[in-house]
């Protein structure tokens, strides 16, 4: 185990493949170039190797912290508030048509 401050070298315990990177790029909707895929394969491997110290810890009895605050039940009253002006909203759109945002055809049904 490293002390967490050592520069990251040494054995890569979790090799990551080009195919993994390409799969993740699809999930992340990034049209990466081949050069980017190559570079990211190495970068991700290095960072994950560093994270191996954390991945190796036995923390079964330790609950996760999703959130640093002990807050509960932050609720808002069901009251209507002002909406945005449509012209202002659509002015930001790359392409708008007929009061709506225009997008290319959708092939992947979700």
């Amino acid at each position: 185990m490293t002390d967490g401050t050592t520069p990251i070298t040494g054995p890569i315990r979790h090799p990551i493949s080009r195919a993994d990177v390409e799969h993740v790029a699809r999930l992340a909707r990034l049209a990466l170039t081949d050069a980017e895929v190559e570079r990211l394969t190495a970068d991700l491997a290095a960072v994950l190797a560093h994270a191996a110290d954390v991945a190796a810890l036995d923390l079964d009895g330790v609950p996760p912290t999703a959130h640093p605050l002990p807050l509960r039940n932050v609720l808002r009253d069901d009251e209507v508030r002002p909406t945005l002006d449509r012209a202002e909203v659509l002015a930001a759109a790359p392409v708008a048509e007929d009061g709506r945002f225009r997008v290319p055809r959708i092939l992947d049904p979700s």
Binding site: V80, R81, P82, T83, L84, R86, G99
Partner: peptide, 18 residues
């Protein structure tokens, strides 16, 4: 999660906020 009206049938993109 916001104060926009929950109402069917309004003109497109008029019941929206950040």
């Amino acid at each position: 999660f916001c104060g926009c009206p929950n109402e069917f049938g309004a003109a497109p993109n008029t019941h929206v906020c950040p």
